[in-house]
Design a protein around this nucleic acid. Sequence first.
DNA 1: GACATCACAATAAGGCATGG
DNA 2: CCATGCCTTATTGTGATGTC
Length: 403
Amino acid sequence: MHKNVPNLRHLRAFREVAINKNISLSAEKIFISQSAITQAINKLEQHFGTSLFNRSPSGMFLTERGEILFRRVDRCLNLLQQGVKDAIRSGNGKAGTNPLNIISTSQLRALIALEGNHSFSMAARSINISQPSLHRSARELEDHLSITLFEKTNIGISLTKAALILSRSAKLAFSELRQGFEEVNESLGIESSYIAIGSMPLARTYILPMALNQLTVSRPQMSINVIDGPYEDLLQHLRQGDIDFLIGALRGNFPSKEIIEETLFETSLSIVARAGHPLAGQSELTLEQLAQYPWVVPRKGTPARSRFEAMFEQAGIHIPMGLIECSSQILIRQLLQASDRLTFLSKHQITLEEKQGILATLAYKPDHSSRPIGLTYRTDWHPTSAQKELMNYLRDLSRNIEE
DNA sequence: GACATCACAATAAGGCATGG
DNA sequence: CCATGCCTTATTGTGATGTC
């Protein structure tokens, strides 16, 4: 995932030279030799496959792609610097010299690997290095920061609070670099970029596929990763920069200003059953009638599930027993087809074929059935042009949705 | 004066074996 | 499982020297 992250000191050197427009001066500032910086920059240029500076007698000036990268590198380093500071504070350590001097990419990689794996051996395997190597990097990091990063718990090795803070900044920092790499490639006309989208059930069925098709027409080389899962997991990945944005039902009420929710459209929930269902075609259904049948419902904690429960509770009716919780659209169809179960679907989850005869929308309109569908992303996220393009397709498609 | 380059030195990163 | 020692390999850095 975070392959090929360049040496942090090289990135620092790059930033200094970009600011000072002078290698020798930068060399004095960050205490390494002039030749080391020259080579570091060459290496970065090789890594990103483009020249980053115009060398002129009056100094080193960023090329167009150098500028692009500089913005990302600057954010990357700031994130890391802040992350180390916060982690040290959280771990009651003493803030020492410049944090960027004491940590390396491989140490951060080790840290990140340990976040998802509760043993050194598994973490090592997950990033294809040997257990001793990973172990050493991890302990070195701990040593350099002089705070506790790892502790033994009942599930194995866990990260301390301080370690989690650092790991999160590192992921965000690496993801800035990933985005920078993609922007540079875009500017070179290499369409190899990559987008990770977190998808909640609704969007998947209609709007997202259409937008993805549009995007792949204009950018055939693009690789796209659509990830689904429980909202909490997706949000977690979003906050750590693993996912670029989420699409689906908005939850609202974010405690912090860290996350933005952008409404694309409103959709309304309908109660649906198979076409030959006993309640299909009847008018004026009551909640009591609906409570007689078994249901397929969304996971607990989702907005649609809350609506489902509120619908009965407000009317003082017991919630039907024998619920099946399921978020797979295909499975829901099959459950409905084979039984008299009912479910909540929003208008845009029902396809044309289904409207023409496989599913029946029952004559009962839940209160407050309308809910916002939209995009969720980090406030400090800076989308690449491919990412912006995809979001614009989604916005355009939403505008044309007939309600 | 300021960057590039070269030969070599120094470190960092990684692996294997092996013992708690 | 984790931790360590010991060794190899890869990466980075230095200082001298070249080039424009």
